[in-house]
């Protein structure tokens, strides 16, 4: 069983509270299904980048970041499975495009 924590960072005003709860449930489900984590024990935090404080390519950003840290680490095949599952879930629920999302799954 792998332990994973998620830190999600979004541009202010892009994702409402109700949607965040659904996204957190989605992250916990992915952690349980692919990493064997207990869904009730997957910390998920959200923070906002205030409007006018986030830039991409020198222009205001619409990009969200989902950063996972996997205690003990995983092999690259499983890592990519996790990241792709997160992308699919996040874009479907939030309505953002795949180009507006960065996902990492780091060994910790």
């Amino acid at each position: 069983m792998a332990n994973i924590t998620f830190r999600c960072t979004m541009q202010e005003g892009q994702v409402d509270e109700e949607t965040r709860a659904v996204l957190a449930d989605g992250l916990r489900r992915i952690a349980a299904e692919l990493l064997g984590a207990s869904a009730d024990d997957v910390p998920v935090s959200f923070s906002d980048i205030p409007a006018g404080f986030g830039f991409r390519g020198g222009a205001p950003s619409t990009t969200s970041l989902v950063r996972g840290a996997i205690v003990g680490g995983v092999d690259q095949e499983l890592r990519e499975q996790v990241m792709r599952a997160i992308i699919d879930m996040w874009t479907e629920i939030s309505g953002c495009t795949v180009d507006e999302l960065i996902v990492s799954a780091a060994d910790a």
Binding site: R79, E80, M83, I87, I102, V103, A106
Partner: peptide, 13 residues
């Protein structure tokens, strides 16, 4: 720094 392969951006590793 971190390994490039730990991150996907725009759907690509």
């Amino acid at each position: 720094e971190g390994p490039a392969s730990w991150t996907m951006e725009g759907g690509m590793v």
